[in-house]
């Protein structure tokens, strides 16, 4: 997080905008060449954000699925091949997946909150989202403890097992939420006026350039429909 300034940082709002453009390209059934174009742009953005590693992993996954689809699936009987249909669907909408992953891997929660505050999103929504994102990692830890505790007891039957996972999770969540809301209230979360953010966001030249590039691809994909592909 500390080295962020060295890399190209986009305003979260720009990230959402280009992701929307990407969706238009994908779901308007544009010629394939525009898919490749969007993916190239995203690959560049990943590298500029210093996230080349995640991009390589993502593209490697894509390549594996693509190869399997090309060479492996035709060899399988069609009944078995259908089992893998969703994988092929992921290939079809891959530019969107890349866009979503770009937002997730390059945006911190505080930047997101800051962007939401700038867009005047209702504070209740912003708070809920922030708590959700903060609570996800804690939840994983809790589940691990509960599974440990369960395996020390002989618990049988699906409904019984479900209940045993649910009770501590939900009780724990209720407790944590109670304590968290006290700690937030004691730090003035109920202040009715406008709030600010330490991590500021704002539009810069790079936001304009990137947004323009994606818009250009999007418009071109419409113009070229029927000519290419």
């Amino acid at each position: 997080m500390t080295g962020e300034k060295k890399f190209l940082a986009l305003d979260p709002r720009t990230k959402f905008l280009i992701w929307l453009f990407t969706n238009v390209v994908v779901f308007s059934n544009a010629p394939r060449i525009f898919f490749t174009l969007t993916m190239t742009l995203y690959a560049l953005l990943f590298i500029l954000a210093g996230k080349a590693g995640s991009m390589v992993k993502l593209l490697a996954g894509y390549a594996v699925v693509l190869l399997a689809q090309r060479f492996l699936l035709p060899l399988l009987p069609s009944a078995i091949a259908t089992i893998f249909a969703t994988v092929t669907y992921a290939v079809l909408i891959f530019p969107c997946v890349m866009g979503g992953m770009y937002i997730i891997s390059t945006t911190s929660v505080s930047q997101l909150i800051s962007a939401f505050r700038r867009m005047r999103v209702p504070e209740n929504f912003t708070i809920t989202m922030a708590v959700t994102l903060r609570y996800l990692p804690a939840l994983r830890e809790d589940v691990r403890h509960i599974l440990d505790a369960m395996s020390l007891r002989q618990i049988k039957g699906l409904e019984q097992r479900l209940e045993c996972i649910y009770i501590p999770i939900l009780m724990g969540t209720a407790q944590t939420a109670e304590e968290l809301s006290e700690s937030a209230a004691a730090r003035g979360i109920e202040y009715p006026g406008r709030k600010t953010s330490w991590h500021t966001v704002g539009f810069h030249v790079q936001d304009g350039i990137v947004a323009f590039l994606f818009l250009a691809v999007c418009v071109a994909s419409f113009l070229c429909k029927g000519v290419l592909g």
Binding site: V109, S110, P137, Q175, E179, L180, R187, I189
Partner: peptide, 8 residues
């Protein structure tokens, strides 16, 4: 564990 609101 339960008094933090932020991730950073």
């Amino acid at each position: 564990k339960s008094q933090f609101f932020n991730l950073d």
